[in-house]
Amino acid sequence: MNTLKEIFSYRQMISSLVRRDLRGRYKGSFLGFLWTFINPLLQLLVYTAVFSLILRTNIERYYLYLFVGLIPWIFFSSSLTGGAASVVAQKDLIKKIYFPRQVIPISYVTSCFINMLLSFIAVFAVMIVSGAGIYFPGLVCLPVIMAAEYLLALGAALLTSAVTVYFRDLEHILGIFSMAWMYMTPIMYDRSIVPQRLMPVFRLNPMTHVIECYRAVLYYKCMPDMKGLLSAAGLGIVFLVAGHFVFLKLQKRFAEEL
């Protein structure tokens, strides 16, 4: 509880780190902040090309189907892999001054989150331009889904960032791990094509629920499956609590290990 209070009192630091990160990310590049939109759009282009020209799915408006899942996934996977490196990257700060160490993964995940929110501008643009339209009642659920995903991402980042300090290989392992995770989550395909015996794995995967909730609201234009939403939020809280305790335990020797 004290830790939470302390982290809250450092909210200014979180916000300045987030701002620094967002401003610094595309600094010096010609297109600058536009990359926030261009990058996911280009990724979308690649995947759409592969899946509608070569692997041919029969999903209607596949680009949108993919897009509404891909953007949340990019947020989660960058929190996982980038978040792992975040504490090590700030070692100068950690070795020199005191502040609650959680501030670093929190700011990193938050800046990824804001990036996702900005990318959603592109998502809505695609929805309107393509004529798919927006389902307004579903939008009420969107913040809840996002919050659940934020908790998940933060829990993962707390865990990986603390472990990476002691075990630097994790950063590289996570690269491949997050790729595998992406393919084990129904982002590019529908869960209906998943073999029945693999279904338990998919059900345990919190990102399955998250992605499907997004898709329900933004693609299928219906209310998300409440059970799925609740289990996503529940798993998010479990992730966060676990990540928090591991972080708390490991952070004591950060300054010595870095």
């Binding site: 630091m13 300045s16 780190l17 600094k27 700060l93 070795k95 020199k96 001054i97």
Partner: peptide, 26 residues
């Protein structure tokens, strides 16, 4: 102990004051 830890070279002095002060919990 370590003066100027957390200064960002590309930000102005004024911006760095805010960042640095936030590191001290302000």
């Amino acid at each position: 102990l370590e003066l100027g830890a957390g200064f960002h070279p590309d930000m102005t002095g004024r911006e760095n004051i805010y960042t640095n002060a936030s590191i001290f919990g302000l």
